[in-house]
Design a protein around this nucleic acid. Structure first.
Length: 462
RNA sequence: GCACCGGUGCCCGAGUGGCCCAAGGGGACGGCCUGCAAAGCCGUAAAGCCGCGGGUUCAAAUCCCGCCCGGUGCUCCA
C-alpha cells in the first residue's frame, strides 16, 4: 500500500483514492517564458515517476499538468523582444515539451493552457465575489484572506505571522485591504493582452488558473496536487484558498519536490552555474539525469553538477552493458523474479523511495551477473526480467539501443580509423604486438578508445 | 530578520529510536578475462561512531535544547 508524505500535514498518509482503483493527479507545469531548466526537469521527473508507479500498481490514473501561457514574465519577454505573448508562450511550450520528451517523460493525459481557461477562471472569481470572499478595486479583484479560517495551513504559518513578514518586505498595494490579499483579476493595462470580464477588460491573476483547471478536469476533491517546494507559498496556499473560498473540496493530498543545487549553491542564472537543460542533455545521456534524480529522494534538496552527472552516466553505462550482456545470453523466457519485485514495491510504497528501489535493481543486476557466470540461466533470466521491468517503471530503458544516437562520425575519419584498427588486428594476428600497441597508442592520443572482444574490435570516442 | 528543510565514507546519497559496528551508485584497490591493456564480470577496503556542544532514553545518525554552515519561502521562481 502506497504511503507518501502529505505536505499539508507533514505526515505520511496511506494513499486511499477518492474513487477506488483510480488516481487523479495534478501538478504545476511551467510558465512558458523561457527554456526549461534543471528544476523543471526534476519536478516533472518526480511526478512522471509517481504516475508511472501508480499505473504499474494498478491504478487507473488521470494525470493533468498545465501550461501557464499568460503571465507578467511572458508579457515582459514579448515586449522586450518585440514579439507577441502567444509567440513567446508557443515557443517555450514547445521547448518544454521537447526537453521533457528527451527525458522520456510520459505526456500527461491532459495538458490545459491557462488562456483556454479564462472563462472558467472568471466563473471561479465571480463565485468568490458572490460569496464575499473577494472584493473589487480599481486595479482588479482581490481575494480577502480574512474570509478563510485556515489560510496559511499549507505553509504552516498563521495569518498574523505571514502578515508580519509581508509588512516587513512587501510594498503594500494601496488598493489592497491587507498585504496578504492577492489579485484574482488584474485590470487591463495599456499594451497587455486582455479578456472581457464582469469587472471590465483585464487578465487573470496568478494561482487562479490551476484551480479552474484542476477542479474542472479532475473534479472536486481530486487526489493529489503537486509541484516544486518553492510553490508552496504563495502559489499553492492561494490556490487552496480560492477553492476553499468557493466551498469546494480541493486536493486531498499535496506532494512537493525538493530543490536542485549546483555545486552546493542555489541554481540561478545570476550565479552563472546554470546550464540550460538543452545543453545538459546534449552533453549527457538524458537517462543519466533521470538516474541521478532517482538516486535522491524526491523531497530532498539534490546536487547536480558535472561530477554527479558523470557518476550517474557511469552507473547507467553499467546498466546498459548488463542489459546487452543478458540479451546476448539467450536466456529462457521467464517472468520477473518475485522477490525482487516485492522488494522494489516495498521501497516505492514507502514514500516513493526511488533510491532504495534503485538499490534493489542494482542488487538484481549484480546477482544476475553472478548467476550467469555460474551458468544458472533460469535464475539470471528472472533477475534480468525484473531489473528491466522495474527500471521501466522508473522510466529508464536500458541497453545500448536505448542510448541516444551519437553524432554521426566524419566518414573519412571513420574510414581511416577502421583501417588502422584492421592494421592493428593484422599485426596482432602476426603477434607483432609492438606494432599493434603503437597503433593503439596513436588512436588513444586522438581520443579513440578500442574495445577488443571475441567478435572483433570496436572503437568509440572516449 | 522571521519560518521551514537539510548537514551521513574520497564524491553522490539511503536510513528518522533497537533489525545500523550505517543501503545503493561513482571512484579506489585486488582477482578473472586479455599477448598487454581497455571494456566487462566478481570481490575487498573505506564513516572509530553520522556538522559542533549539551540533554532525554535500557537503547539515538534517528527525539529535545543551543550553536555553526547550506538551501527554500516571506507576491507571482519547479
Amino acid at each position: 500500500m502506497l504511503q507518501f508524505t502529505d505536505s499539508l500535514t507533514g505526515e505520511k498518509v496511506e494513499f486511499t483514492p477518492r474513487d477506488p482503483g483510480k488516481a487523479s493527479v495534478y501538478w504545476c507545469g511551467p510558465t512558458v517564458y523561457d527554456d526549461p531548466h534543471l528544476g523543471h526537469a526534476r519536478s516533472t521527473l518526480a511526478f512522471d515517476v509517481l504516475v508511472r508507479y501508480l499505473r504499474w500498481s494498478g491504478y487507473e490514473v488521470c494525470a493533468v499538468s498545465n501550461i501557464t501561457d499568460i503571465d507578467d514574465k511572458i508579457i515582459n519577454r514579448a515586449a522586450a523582444e518585440g514579439s507577441s505573448e502567444p509567440e513567446v508562450a508557443g515557443r517555450y511550450e514547445a521547448s518544454f515539451i521537447g526537453q521533457m520528451d528527451r527525458l522520456n517523460v510520459a505526456h500527461p493525459d491532459l495538458r490545459p493552457r491557462a488562456t483556454e481557461y479564462v472563462d472558467r477562471m472568471v466563473e471561479v472569481i465571480s463565485d468568490l465575489v458572490d460569496r464575499g470572499m473577494a472584493y473589487t478595486t480599481a486595479s482588479g479583484v482581490y481575494f480577502d484572506v480574512d474570509g478563510l479560517d485556515d489560510y496559511g495551513a499549507l505553509v504552516g504559518r498563521s495569518v498574523e505571522d505571514l502578515r508580519e513578514g509581508a509588512g516587513a518586505r512587501v510594498e503594500v498595494d494601496d488598493d489592497k485591504g491587507d498585504p496578504l490579499d492577492f489579485a484574482l483579476w488584474k485590470a487591463a493595462k495599456p499594451g497587455e493582452p486582455t479578456w472581457d470580464s464582469p469587472w471590465g477588460p483585464g487578465r487573470p491573476g496568478w494561482h487562479i488558473e490551476c484551480v479552474a483547471m484542476s477542479l474542472h478536469l479532475l473534479g472536486d476533491g481530486f487526489d493529489i496536487h503537486g509541484g516544486g517546494d518553492d510553490l508552496v507559498f504563495p502559489h499553492h496556499e492561494n490556490e487552496r484558498a480560492e477553492a476553499l473560498g468557493c466551498d469546494r473540496a480541493f486536493a486531498r493530498h499535496w506532494i512537493h519536490n525538493g530543490m536542485v543545487q549546483v555545486d552546493g549553491e542555489k541554481m540561478s542564472k545570476s550565479l552563472g552555474n546554470f546550464t540550460t537543460l538543452n545543453d545538459l542533455l546534449d552533453t549527457w545521456d538524458p537517462r543519466a539525469l533521470r538516474l541521478l534524480v532517482l538516486q535522491t529522494h524526491y523531497r530532498r534538496t539534490m546536487e547536480v553538477g558535472s561530477t554527479t552527472l558523470d557518476q550517474s552516466a557511469a552507473a547507467l553505462a553499467r546498466l546498459d552493458k548488463f542489459a546487452d550482456r543478458m540479451a546476448a545470453a539467450d536466456l529462457p523466457e521467464t517472468g520477473s523474479d518475485a522477490d525482487v519485485v516485492d522488494r522494489f514495491r516495498s521501497a516505492m510504497d514507502e514514500d516513493l523511495g526511488s533510491p532504495q528501489a534503485l538499490a534493489v535493481i542494482f542488487d538484481a543486476v549484480r546477482d544476475a551477473n553472478r548467476a550467469l557466470d555460474a551458468e544458472d540461466d533460469d535464475t539470471a533470466a528472472g533477475l534480468h526480467a525484473a531489473a528491466i521491468e522495474l527500471a521501466g517503471v522508473l522510466g529508464l530503458e536500458l541497453g545500448a539501443a536505448a542510448a541516444p544516437a551519437r553524432d554521426v562520425e566524419d566518414d573519412a575519419a571513420a574510414a581511416e580509423i577502421d583501417d588502422l584498427v584492421d592494421q592493428r588486428l593484422t599485426a596482432k594476428a602476426a603477434k607483432d604486438y609492438g606494432r599493434a600497441d603503437r597503433i593503439r597508442d596513436q588512436l588513444t592520443a586522438r581520443g579513440i578508445v578500442l574495445e577488443d572482444s571475441a567478435r572483433g574490435t570496436s572503437w568509440h570516442r572516449g
